[in-house]
Each structure stands twice: as C-alpha cells, then as structure tokens.
Design a binder for these strands. Sequence first.
DNA 1: ATGGTAGAAACTCTA
Length: 258
Amino acid sequence: MKVSTWNVNGIRARETQLLDWLLLERPDVLCLQEIKASPDQIPETLRDLPGYWGRWHGGKGYSGVSLHLRRDRFPEPTFGHPGFDHENRVVTADVGDVTFASIYVPNGNKDYRAKIGFLEGLDAWVAAAHAGGRRLVVCGDLNVARTDRDVHPKLRKPTEIGQTDEERALLERILARGLGDLLRHHDPDNDRLFTWWAPWRSLRERNIGWRLDYVLASTPVAERSTGCRAFREFGSSDHGPVNATFDLPAVTPPPGPA
DNA sequence: ATGGTAGAAACTCTA
C-alpha cells in the first residue's frame, strides 16, 4: 500500500502537476492540503478523480483538504469530519478498522491559540480512535517542526511559531498515543530532511527549509512500513509531497473467523 | 530588524 500526502498550495494552480503525480505514483491513498477551493471550484478533470473514491472539503480561496482512495483497492469508505475540524482542515475515511486522515493544522501566525486548540483536538481524537480499537494513518501539514533537527540550522529560532516548546510538546503527546513518525523513522540521522521551503532566495534549491509534513501511523501499521520519502524535486508548491509505503494489502478484509 | 514569493476572497490577506 502506498500513501501520498501533499500540501498543494492551491489546487487550481496545481491541476496538471497533480495529474502528473497520479500517473507517476498511482498512490492507493492521496491526501491533499491547502486546496484553497470549494468543491464547486475544483477543476473538472479533478472533480471525480478517475479511479478514486474522494471527498473535497474546502472553502473559497483559503485552507481546505481532500482525501482520495483507489476504487480498485478499497471498498467505498465512510468520509467524516471530526469535531475538531475548523476552517475545513480535516477529512477522514473509515475503511475496515483503519481510519485515514488528511489534516491541515493552522499555521498559527494569525491565531496561535486556535492552533494550540486544534492540536489538542487532534490529540483527543487520536486517543479516542485508539481506545475504540481503530488503526490510524494520519497525513498532512502539521505546521510544527518536531525538533531542532527538523529546521535548517540557519532558520532555527525557538520563539518562532512552528518551533516553540509548547507546540513540540503537544506533537510529542500526540505521537505518544501510539503513532509512528514514518519520515523520521526511515531517516533517523538526516538533519537536512525537509518538506517546506520559503518561496524566495532559492531556499528550496539550497534545501534550507523545515519539516512540516508528516505521515503518522498507529504502531501495528507503522511496523509494516517499508519506506517513506519526501520529494524536494517535484512540483511548484512551497511544500513537497511525501510518500509512505507499507507491506499491507490496500484492501482491509473485514474482521471474521480465520 | 527586515525582506523575499505565491495563491487566492483580490487595489489585501494568509502563509
């Protein structure tokens, strides 16, 4: 199973790039963030992404997420929007005992307390899902660099939003609910592992950035993880896509006698 | 201390 997540920074400006990405990677699950469009504004070619179940969840010009699952690999999922959703930042898909989520955490520069509240809501939702026996694959732009290693040395600044102790402690609390950080898991010593680059002064070409985009998976799923990588070279969003692969069939068989 | 770019609700806001 291959899962792909990408903050596209405007789906209408990324139409052809997204189609290229699907042809190249054919992920079983696709999570998008910052689509900046309401469902009626989604380009015709993307509206019913061929071969995918899908849910577009956004408003005009700001924020928004989507989630897509291959029809040939999954039965029709149940899409949902948990209570901590705010400004069209969360979409989930239940299929079997697995829940996929596409998440766009508020940047926090506009309203820092709202970002903290959102992360607390995500934490409570993860705890409740695990308590209910569900396995999670949580993907998206969490807008927090987990540790100093996740920010280029020239950009480290502990008071800056996205790097504060308070945000990092909350992220660790979420992970301690039983989620693996797959990109870091597969590249533990890399201190140049970034997924976002400010769009000026060739910072992307020079790989001076932050790691803000994550694939998180519940321990039983994370244990089947076979790889996870960030694509600095693909696309013109300020974020690169992240792919994770698993030694798991995409289809989740219903629970039953062996 | 400041700025740079990009996408959009657009002669301004958010990131």
